[in-house]
Design a protein around this nucleic acid. Structure first.
Lengths: 150, 150
DNA sequence: TATTGTTATACTCTATAACTATA
DNA sequence: TATAGTTATAGAGTATAACAATA
């Protein structure tokens, strides 16, 4: 009799967490397409909205992303009028990025889309399951030091 | 006073689920690197192990992946000696894939890696949180019809 | 020289389309 | 003519490395 490895991979927490995560990420990306944005654009808006970073290099570190990627994300958002680039007068190498009022509105709309997705997830669960999921994910997010989308 | 959009994106379920999912997926990919495998290789092994599909086209449909990708995944696994390709005698266009005993061992090792990851996730949670997360993810996986990694 | 932002280039993953062999 | 598998090609997304301006 051959060995029976019945600890099925597809039933592990890791598998489900990563598969569902990718699935939700894809759905979110799809929901953003109408705004001509990718999730990382929203990540950048969120960083600016939270005031955690100003210069592009700081943003790159916070988002755990290459500085060159911040350039193209910012280029796109700037061309949409969602953000502004301002040379730092104190150090003219630095570009200080900030949300325009259009950018603030856009961020609010994107957050609303995420809440719609949340509602769809919630619809599959009892309210106590939902609360437990939310709490567990919150705990994990904190322990992994999750500030920004990777 | 400017509008205050304090429904923060980074605190939505969608954000946390997708971010944590990607994070765990990356960690799993890293854990597999020592075997020279990607998560989708393991997905293919799992499909063969579960006996749900034989021909490459059936596998592609089950994995929701392009048939051409199955070719390269199978090429790699075959070159490692983890699977065998056999022409279907009844229809010589079809290749029937099957696990070798090395392939079965490899699958078991990869499942073990996932269980290690599970343990790391579990370590961040109380046992009741862990149970709640597991149940909620199981429910979601079922409702999204999740068979195989996407 | 060191640092910020930018541009040029390359790499990974995956899909689509063209092709071969069987049916 | 249609189908299973394969090969060739292309695109998205992102990183690394080379470069320009400023410190």
């Amino acid at each position: 009799m051959p060995n029976m490895n019945d600890a099925k991979w597809t039933e592990t927490l890791s598998f489900r967490l990563s598969t569902l995560g990718v699935l939700v990420a894809d759905q979110y990306a799809e929901a953003l397409a109408v705004h001509d944005l990718k999730p990382k654009h929203v990540g950048l808006l969120e960083v600016l909205g939270s005031g955690l970073a100003g210069s592009q290099l700081e943003i790159a570190k916070l988002m755990r992303v290459a500085p060159s990627l911040v350039v193209s994300l910012a280029d796109h958002l700037e061309s949409m009028g969602a953000i502004e680039r301002l040379r730092d007068p104190a150090d003219r190498r630095r570009q200080i990025l900030s949300l325009t009022s259009e950018g603030r509105d856009l961020l609010a709309e994107c957050t609303a889309k995420a809440l719609v997705l949340d509602a769809k997830v919630a619809a599959e669960l009892t309210s106590s399951q939902h609360a437990a999921l939310s709490e567990a994910l919150g705990r994990l997010a904190a322990s992994y030091g999750l500030p920004v989308r990777k």
